[in-house]
Amino acid sequence: MKATIDRVPILVTLIMLVALPLALLGYHRIYLPYKFRGARIITLTALASDGVWTREPVMGINYWRKHFSATPNIHIQQGESVVLRLASADVLHSFAIPALNIGPIEVPAGEVREVKFTGERPGPLVFLCWQVCSPVHEKLRGQIVVLGPGGQPGPEDPKLEPDLDGRSPQ
């Protein structure tokens, strides 16, 4: 009995030290893919300080020492189901894809909003922050490119800049 009296608390402590980070990791690696099975999950975080939507993970350990880069064009296949997990690391942002009539969706600081869509038509889809959030609000935009058959970007040139009002060129 005396020999085992400490083994249980040590074991419990060790299990706890290992299990908790595994559980947190499991949320991203197991739970979310299960929840959105069949869909591709893309996380975008808005940062007013850098004026970007970024796909880099933004968290406590790196937020204060790092400048984040804007997400490059996101390529998805025609017909592919996509879940965008939208987060804000600082202020209230909003998100919209005008070409798909998605949004504006408010993205409060510290919260996550999810939007699901399917790229039906090949071509570029501009997404942007719809609510003036900072002096660099205009920079908070990016492109999702729906690739057509054979992985081609589609009949429209994806390098074309969208109109200033955010709509894709017709």
């Binding site: 706890m16 030290l17 908790l20 980070p21 947190l24 933004v58 968290m59 406590g60 350990i61 937020y63 204060w64 987060a87 804000s88 690391a89 600082d90 600081a109 510290g110 919260e111």
Partner: peptide, 19 residues
């Protein structure tokens, strides 16, 4: 357990304090 969660949250969670 709680403080372990707190530290992990501080490192890997949102930088927004109220969340």
């Amino acid at each position: 357990l709680l403080f372990y969660l707190f530290i992990l949250a501080g490192l890997f969670g949102t930088p927004i304090g109220s969340r």
